[in-house]
Amino acid sequence: MVYTRRNQNTLSRAERRRFVDAVLRLKRRGEYDEFVRTHIDFYVSDGDDRLRVAHMTPTFLPWHRRFLLDFERALRRMDDGVTVPYWDWTKDRSPAASLWSEDLMGGNGRRSDRRVMTGPFARRNGWVVKEAVTDGDFLTRDLGRRSDPLELPTHRDVTWAMAETVYDVEPWDSTSRRGFRNRLEGWTEESGSARWRSHNRVHRWVGGHMLGGGSVNDPVFWLNHAFVDLLWSRWQRLHPDSAPYLPAKPPTLGDAQYRRIVARREAMPPWRTTPQDMLSHKTIYRYAE
């Protein structure tokens, strides 16, 4: 049965509660922190001479699609009526948006130590951060970076990515000058706050744990990535004649990317899943757009 992922701003009060409750149940069972660890373990930067599957790489989109599916499968074991909602940050752009209300993500971190004080993911309400590079056991946020404010990515950022007709290009990393994947992931050569686009800029805008290795500690991680996943689907519909994933063949010995990226029919660790397997989700879920 194909299920539907919905915009978070269309969820009823009861639907919000069911989603949050399923997340909290996974957390209590220790399963949530396994997702945090996996994401930390697979953050490999593109100056590092080894296989990278999650970021700065063509598999950024299919790897996270599979990661979200695993999470959603776990959530649906807790409550089979729940799916991962998406956050359209081109529309819900303010810390005052209902996304940040007490019955969904909770609010901003306080100024002194960025500790989230309200909602289900506040330390005082029982959400304990266990896997992080900082020592606090509480979730942190700094919505909009108060010390040097910046805005969420706009519709223009999305359009700029969508206009690309090629999925990805050499050198298949954060320095790729063209290609949908790098533009949606959000790496640029610009300086100042113009350097972050789309996906990356959302991580920067939320701040706190979302900035670093432990970004999955903030459940808004999933809502951002569900929207990124939706945008990948939309790009495929817009460009039906483009190869849905590149590279088709692995780089050969002598290529700088030899054994560092995954081609269309190769496995993406930690799974046996290939990008090819992730090209369509229509038999599993759909997006209500």
Partner: peptide, 9 residues
Amino acid sequence: GLMRRADGS
């Protein structure tokens, strides 16, 4: 922990 990017940063 520091990581290196492809552009050397």
